[in-house]
């Protein structure tokens, strides 16, 4: 019983005292919107679709972002242009459902989909939270400046034939007898 009293005094009363002392510490609260908070570049905010260094759409409509999305708020349809590139015929994000988890960015094999440090996305009409490709696509590379998927991938597109991707040898001449 004495031990309990002792514990009460040392532990509980001490705790009370420690917490009470916080009354004399300045609050950490940032008074948004009067004060603008610092947003780290890795902040997971508004989602954008970026372009590769050559100015072409990075998204190849592989559907991995949609698959990774835990709230299923990404829908897209693959299409293929005459150059042989895959691109999304439409790409829709329902931001009223998005939880900014960043899984889509993690899943993206081409660095196309990226989360940005913008979080001011509130709308008065919920329908306005549905963003289409035209709203998402930016004219830049976003956070990753140099990556160009088609320079690495073996699929040939206009302007990059078989064997011209990174680390690729000339196409084999099947009819050659040389080793």
């Amino acid at each position: 019983m004495l031990k309990l009293i002792q514990d009460t005094l040392t532990s509980q009363v001490h705790t009370l005292w420690l917490v009470f002392k916080h009354a004399f510490v300045k609050a950490d609260t940032v008074q948004y919107p009067e004060e603008a908070p610092y947003m780290s570049p890795r902040w997971r905010g508004r989602i954008i679709l970026s372009r590769d260094p050559d100015g072409e759409e990075r998204c190849v409509a592989c559907n991995l972002c949609a698959c990774a999305c835990p709230v299923d708020c990404i829908a897209l349809q693959k299409a293929e242009d005459e150059d042989g590139r895959w691109y999304p015929e439409f790409f829709r994000i329902n931001f009223s459902r998005c939880i900014m988890c960043g899984f889509c960015e993690e899943a993206c094999p081409t660095n196309a989909i990226q989360l940005t440090p913008d979080f001011e996305m509130a709308e008065y009409v919920r329908q306005d939270m549905v963003w289409e490709k035209e709203d998402l696509l930016i004219n830049g590379t976003g956070k990753y400046h140099d990556y160009n998927f088609y320079r690495v991938a073996g699929k040939s597109i206009k302007g990059k034939d078989k064997g011209e991707a990174l680390n690729e040898a000339e196409p084999v001449n099947v009819r050659s007898l040389l080793p």
């Binding site: 299923d72 990404i74 994000i93 329908q127 549905v130």
Partner: peptide, 16 residues
């Protein structure tokens, strides 16, 4: 179980 886009595929028509 991996079906995607359920909350976006018809969102262009109506977000609800």
């Amino acid at each position: 179980h991996r079906y995607s886009g359920r909350t976006a595929m018809k969102a262009n028509i109506n977000v609800h």
